[in-house]
């Protein structure tokens, strides 16, 4: 991935640069290989959507970017650079100044991610005071502006509200305000819309999109919802068993998926007009991360799987600039991207 982008003319250094990230969890009985070689670059003002099912390593990837995983049980390898900071080589003290200030995170459940015994205003102001050392009243003023920025009605009053006094959507807005309190360069969003109503989901997505453009942030948006990923992401990375199996510009990945898993994911999702098309479940279950198969980890569930797929994991093959997949068929040029995989599976349209 990184060597691909290196060939492209680039104006700026990427704000996020991950090279060959491996994360393993050491449990008493087994070692879980959660992330198995993830590499990507993200430039300022770009939104990367990481798409994948539960347990594919999306959230672990995000947490390892901030080194939030429990150090005693986690082994991390690879290189992570964020906004000029060598995350993997930093000590805790230095890391604290990056967390919240340069990189911030939005969590899935705003109910539990906000402290129930403090008001929203106090929680936001506390973070600002911590990182910028300004006075509490100045921080309070900033908190008010932030609540207005995330379009919380009667912001001055809400500043003094406790999390349980707000609706789910409003809590998530407050969470976003908290994450943006120190104007981070990179925003990590861990399924921020999953716990919300569909009607609220779209509001939050639009708000995030708008704020991202206004503030020029780089955003990594993790989701299992294809529709949400299409809505927010400039580029999509499809994750399976701890690897990016396909990366590319959003429209390209959705219109002409190169990896069989992406294709299968799309046919198993309600997306746009589904009338006359059958939704298909992907047969089988995701692989056991405690004992990954030697070959392509999707091979056991893949309808195109061949013998050589089971020998070793296909390397990242470049389809087009910025477009990568890990599938032998693509590497061999077997796959014609002109004819989308989607149509292979669709039944006669009315």
């Amino acid at each position: 991935m990184s060597q691909v982008l290196a060939n492209l003319p680039r104006a700026t250094e990427p704000v996020v640069s991950v090279e060959d990230l491996h994360v393993r969890f050491l449990l008493r009985e087994a070692t879980v290989a959660a992330i198995n070689g993830v590499s990507f670059d993200l430039e300022a003002g770009q939104v990367l959507g990481i798409l994948g099912e539960s347990g594919s390593g999306k959230s672990v990837t995000l947490r390892s970017l901030m080194r939030l995983l429990p150090p005693a049980r986690t082994r991390t390898e690879g290189r992570i650079r964020i906004a000029g900071h060598e995350i993997t080589a930093m000590d805790e003290t230095a890391l604290r100044h990056v967390r919240g200030a340069k990189v911030a995170m939005i969590f899935q459940e705003p109910m539990v991610a906000l402290d129930p015994v403090f008001t929203i205003g106090v929680q936001i102001a506390e973070t600002i005071v911590r990182h910028e050392g300004i006075s509490y009243s100045a921080a309070n003023q900033r908190a008010l502006e932030l609540l207005e920025m995330v379009q919380i009605p009667s912001a001055a009053r809400r500043l003094k509200s406790y999390p349980h006094e707000m609706s789910g959507g409003m809590r998530q807005r407050a969470m976003i305000a908290l994450a943006l309190s120190c104007r981070p360069t990179v925003l990590l969003a861990d399924e921020p819309t999953t716990a919300l109503d569909v009607t609220v989901q779209i509001q939050i997505i639009l708000l995030l999109r708008q704020l991202q453009q206004e503030l020029g942030m780089a955003v990594i948006f993790v989701t299992h919802d294809v529709g949400v990923a299409i809505e927010v992401a400039d580029r999509i990375a499809v994750m399976y068993a701890g690897r990016f199996v396909e990366v590319g510009p959003t429209e390209k990945v959705i219109d002409t998926p190169a990896h069989p898993y992406t294709a299968a994911l799309l046919t198993s999702t309600v997306l746009g007009s589904t009338f006359g098309r059958r939704l298909e479940a992907i047969p089988g279950t995701p692989p056991d991360l405690r004992a990954l198969p030697a070959g392509c980890s999707f091979a056991p569930r893949c309808r195109h799987a061949q013998d050589r797929c089971r020998v070793h994991m296909p390397p990242e093959a470049v389809l087009a600039p910025g477009r990568i997949t890990r599938c032998v068929r693509v590497a061999d040029g077997e796959l014609d991207l002109g004819s989308p995989n989607l149509s292979e599976r669709s039944i006669a349209k009315p």
Partner: peptide, 29 residues
């Protein structure tokens, strides 16, 4: 193990701050 403790870590709080501020106030009652 609640998310707001991780959230506090993610916003750069030190361990002592988390213990004194977030844990204690939730636990004392």
């Amino acid at each position: 193990h609640l998310d707001f403790v991780e959230a506090a870590r993610a916003s750069g709080a030190r361990r002592l701050t988390i213990m004194r501020y977030h844990i204690l106030s939730n636990v004392l009652g």
